[in-house]
């Protein structure tokens, strides 16, 4: 039932604004893929193109082997969950969920008792039994979200598309629904694409993450891939905090000023580069040949995390250093920092 989705070099402009600039993406049957990117990067546009709600200027979208260009919206059999759910306000929950089945052409339409059964199965699936007579205005945000999902699932979609499914919910409900959606996906196995601007959500939920920026895909990969091996500076900065150091690479060493700070570089990229280092990849050490001296200027606590801000000579921005289980330094203390892991990008 689930199909592979192939997106081939899609271009889309709105008037003169290029919203998508040559986007390609292969999605396996049954895969859960996140489209991650900042606001305005083209996520919704790409999702709407897959759904057939927008037409591409160039490129194709294939479901399996079929070019979707000639398919009507009904023939595409898409389950689309809109950002603000778009529930029908004049219909109750049961009528909302049954809408797709009742919209089928006469011959393909199931009988009323069959429809009722399907609605109640779906309500059970999304854990909303007993609410069939409620109207959307009488539901909480999380409940609306689940009604929207049940309504989309009712037509037995080949592909499930969700636009910021948790965007309008408060933090606690988001967390709950995340785990629930992951589990639901495991049970139903729909090819699923969901849009989010929350990197934590994308990394936690998705089999693979596609990171969009300015209408282009910067990188596609598993959570570990994109987090540990970002392909571009944008991905590195977008997926989490990172300190940025201008360095010069000579042989296998990276120099900050005339001080070597990172060794063992195998990438063949001599010359000026930017070194991105996450706060947890900076350690305070006693003595080491590759170290960066600095002064602790500030100490912060963020939940379980303690963090030091270290000023380094020749660098405007202070470095964020996670202290993990290390003994906290004092403010004003001179420390030496060792970089345990970093990502190098040739300077533009």
């Amino acid at each position: 039932m689930s199909v592979a989705v192939t997106i081939e070099t899609i271009e889309k402009r709105f008037e003169n604004f290029p919203a998508l600039r040559g986007v390609s993406l292969d999605i396996q049957p049954g895969e859960l893929v996140a489209l991650l990117g900042p606001s305005g990067s083209g996520k919704t546009t790409l999702l709407r193109l897959i759904a057939g709600l927008e037409q591409a200027d160039r490129g194709r979208v294939l479901f399996g082997e079929t070019d979707t260009h000639d398919l009507s919206l009904r023939e595409r059999r898409i389950g689309f969950v809109f950002q603000h759910y778009a529930l029908f306000k004049t219909m109750n929950v049961a009528e909302n969920i049954a809408f797709g089945l009742r919209s089928r052409p006469h011959r393909a339409r199931p009988g009323e008792s069959e429809i009722r059964k399907r609605v109640s199965d779906l309500l059970e699936l999304v854990q909303l039994q007993g609410l069939e007579k409620r109207y959307p205005s009488q539901l909480s945000g999380g409940q609306r979200q689940r009604v929207a999902l049940a309504r989309a699932l009712a037509i037995e979609p080949r592909v499930l598309l969700l636009d910021e499914p948790f965007g309008a919910l408060d933090a606690r409900v988001r967390k709950d629904l995340r785990g629930w959606l992951r589990e639901l996906h495991g049970r139903t196995g729909h090819t699923t694409v969901f849009v989010t601007h929350d990197q934590e959500e994308a990394l936690e939920l998705a089999d693979r993450v596609a990171i969009l920026n300015d209408g282009k895909i910067e990188q596609v990969g598993s959570a570990d891939d994109v987090y540990d091996h970002p392909a571009t500076p944008f991905v590195c900065e977008f997926l989490g905090e990172a300190n940025k150091l201008p360095v010069k690479v000579v042989g296998s060493l990276a120099f900050f000023g005339d001080r070597p700070v990172l060794g063992g570089i195998t990438q063949n990229q001599g010359g000026l580069a930017s070194l991105y280092v996450r706060p947890q990849h900076l350690r305070i050490v006693d003595e080491t040949p590759l170290a960066l001296p600095g002064t602790v200027e500030h100490l912060r606590r963020n939940g379980p995390l303690r963090r030091a801000e270290v000023a380094v000579e020749g660098l405007k921005k202070r470095l964020d250093v996670d202290l993990a289980s290390q003994v906290a330094p004092a403010i004003g203390e001179r420390v030496r920092l060792r970089i345990t892991h970093g990502n190098l990008f040739a300077a533009a």
């Binding site: 759904a51 057939g52 709600l53 919206l73 009904r74 595409r76 059999r77 898409i78 389950g79 689309f80 809109f82 603000h84 778009a86 529930l87 029908f88 306000k89 809408f99 797709g100 919209s103 089928r104 309504r151 989309a152 009712a154 037509i155």
Partner: peptide, 15 residues
């Protein structure tokens, strides 16, 4: 959005 939702669910324009 409501109209688009109905269309993706397979409804005819009249419906």
């Amino acid at each position: 959005a409501d109209e688009e939702a109905a269309l993706t669910l397979g409804a005819s324009p009249w419906r």
